[in-house]
Amino acid sequence: MMGSIDPILLIASLMVASTPILLAAIGELVTEKAGVLNLGVEGMMIVGAIAGFAMAVETGSPLMGFLGAALAGAALSLIFAFLTQVLLSNQVATGLALTLFGIGFSALIGQGYTGVRPPPTPKMDFGPLSDIPVIGPMLLRHDPMVYVSILIIAAVWAFLKFTRAGLVLRAVGESHDAAHALGYKVVRLRVLAIAFGGACAGLGGAYLSLVRVPQWTEGMTAGAGWIALAIVVFASWRPWRVLAGAYLFGGVTVLQLNLQAAGVAIPVQYLSMAPYLITILVLVLISADRRRAAQNAPASLGRVFHASS
């Protein structure tokens, strides 16, 4: 029965299905690397979804839509940044409040946009390349955002690994007090990281409302932001593993739907738990190996930083 599923199409569709959570997760990764836990991803995603949708509809340009979504996500995340970095509020509580606010706020601004069809996002044109067997239909027939999301992953990876700023960011996440003592601007860096996270979450939301579904309906992210949080952990804060994690999470959903469509009887509800259980397992494995855990998990994650001097 498995044989009736075309693996090429399966991979192609899981790439599309995973892109929203991939974008949100890579943003959250940078935020967490800076030592900040922002549980408001869902809120930022859905505000991005409506902001991007509205922008695309008003301007007729999906590109403007994605830009607007990134800006809106970043703007919303700055509320979080202000509260947690300047006013030193608790990050967990503030993030949850951000989600609550984002869901309500997006529904308010979205009231005029239900039932509207957005301008279509064109596919990338790779010319004859997209006709290459296997690789063409699998990898080279997507819309630009699929590639942009992978480029963002690569950029974040390079940034964290090779640049001085990336090193400082990691240092800030590792020990804000030490970083501060060395003269780094902890708060400024963290605010930037939070804004980047917000922008990426906004893009992820807009991908849902402009490409994947494409329409605007209240509450349309339906928990995608929470999955993005899980992926960051699953990836043990490594950019390329975020890609793998997002494709795995997206893949499990796509695969179970495909299996059903192919007539294979599967226990859907139990299968849906699998990614979370795997994530816990991964967590255990990486933390059991303490040396590697210390390299990846930001030690100051979620802690309040206040420069007392």
Binding site: A97, L100, G102
Partner: peptide, 21 residues
Amino acid sequence: PSAAVQAFQGMLLFFLLAFDV
């Protein structure tokens, strides 16, 4: 709209957390 109430609750939480400082 219920969305307005939700946004309002979010605002209340923001302010409570902010003033905590």
